[in-house]
Computed example of a mutant assay.
Amino acid sequence: MLARRSYSKVTAETPSTEEIERLLEAAATAADHAGLAPWRVIELRGAARERLGDALAAAATAAGADADAAASQRRKPLRAELLLAVVVSYRESRKAERWEQDAAAAGVAHLLTLLLDDAGWGAMWRTGPFTRTAPVAQLHGLTVDEALLGWIYVGGRPDGARRERHATVDLAQRHTQLRIAGED
């Protein structure tokens, strides 16, 4: 995990649907309060990526973007041959609030990126200002009880891609202990 990195550029090589399913089986072990499995993953390949580009461009245009900005949105899904849309599918629950279901779905997405990296694939979880717009939701066939968390762009690792470790975090700033007065 310490060596994992995001690949903003990937080659056209992609894992098969069967490989994705094997990795999803492992990713599904993410923490999930109440065992709701409040998520699903949608593969986008080929023309589906072009339709996503059209939906992003439509959302950008509806938000007042000019033609150049809309065209830029249209090209974004073409950066990889495989996109995995990660969807949170909210379930009715007295135990797990919506934010916990968001966390469970995000946990699956994060584990999936780790598993893809471990399997030798380049991956990058991407979002953007139009991730949760009507044209994008419609393209993905989302229900009123679902929301898109973004896409994992997947492909081969380019020759010569850097594999250096992420910058380390200052643990003194990120890790503390709650101390109660009078307790040792």
Score class of each variant (00 low, 15 high):
residue 95 K to V: 13
residue 73 Q to S: 14
residue 64 G to Q: 04
residue 178 L to Y: 09
residue 132 R to A: 13
residue 35 G to Q: 04
residue 70 A to E: 01
residue 127 T to K: 07
residue 73 Q to P: 14
residue 180 I to R: 05
residue 61 T to D: 04
residue 48 A to E: 10
residue 175 H to V: 14
residue 39 W to M: 09
residue 108 V to P: 00
residue 46 G to C: 14
residue 54 D to A: 15
residue 9 K to Q: 13
residue 104 A to R: 01
residue 94 R to N: 11
residue 116 L to W: 09
residue 178 L to V: 07
residue 8 S to T: 12
residue 2 L to N: 15
residue 14 T to L: 00
residue 114 L to T: 01
residue 161 A to N: 06
residue 83 L to Y: 14
residue 82 L to K: 00
residue 109 A to V: 00
residue 121 W to T: 05
residue 56 L to D: 08
residue 153 Y to Q: 04
residue 93 S to V: 11
residue 68 D to N: 12
residue 11 T to M: 09
residue 129 P to E: 13
residue 172 A to T: 08
residue 110 H to I: 04
residue 117 D to V: 07
residue 55 A to N: 04
residue 170 D to G: 12
residue 131 T to A: 09
residue 65 A to H: 01
residue 141 G to A: 00
residue 133 T to V: 11
residue 123 A to E: 10
residue 74 R to W: 06
residue 56 L to I: 04
residue 58 A to L: 15
residue 176 T to C: 05
residue 29 T to L: 10
residue 109 A to C: 06
residue 20 I to F: 00
residue 166 H to I: 05
residue 184 D to K: 12
residue 61 T to P: 03
residue 107 G to T: 00
residue 85 A to Y: 02
residue 115 L to F: 07
residue 13 E to D: 11
residue 82 L to E: 01
residue 173 Q to D: 06
residue 17 T to V: 08
residue 169 V to G: 00
residue 37 A to Q: 10
residue 40 R to D: 06
residue 27 A to S: 02
residue 60 A to P: 12
residue 54 D to E: 15
residue 72 S to E: 10
residue 144 V to L: 15
residue 86 V to H: 01
residue 86 V to L: 12
residue 97 E to F: 15
residue 64 G to H: 06
residue 92 E to G: 11
residue 96 A to I: 07
residue 89 S to C: 11
residue 38 P to H: 08
residue 92 E to T: 13
residue 21 E to K: 05
residue 141 G to D: 00
residue 55 A to T: 07
residue 9 K to A: 12
residue 72 S to G: 11
residue 104 A to K: 03
residue 118 D to I: 08
residue 153 Y to D: 03
residue 126 R to S: 12
residue 121 W to G: 06
residue 8 S to V: 07
residue 104 A to S: 09
residue 125 W to Y: 09
residue 26 A to P: 04
residue 134 A to Q: 12
residue 133 T to Q: 13
residue 44 L to P: 00
residue 114 L to D: 00
residue 103 A to W: 03
residue 75 R to M: 14
residue 24 L to V: 08
residue 154 V to K: 06
residue 184 D to E: 14
residue 47 A to G: 07
residue 106 A to N: 02
residue 92 E to N: 12
residue 123 A to D: 08
residue 79 R to L: 04
residue 157 R to C: 15
residue 101 Q to R: 06
residue 133 T to I: 12
residue 90 Y to F: 15
residue 154 V to H: 02
residue 159 D to Q: 13
residue 45 R to E: 09
residue 7 Y to R: 08
residue 136 V to N: 10
residue 38 P to Q: 08
residue 129 P to G: 13
residue 49 R to N: 00
residue 60 A to Y: 13
residue 120 G to K: 12
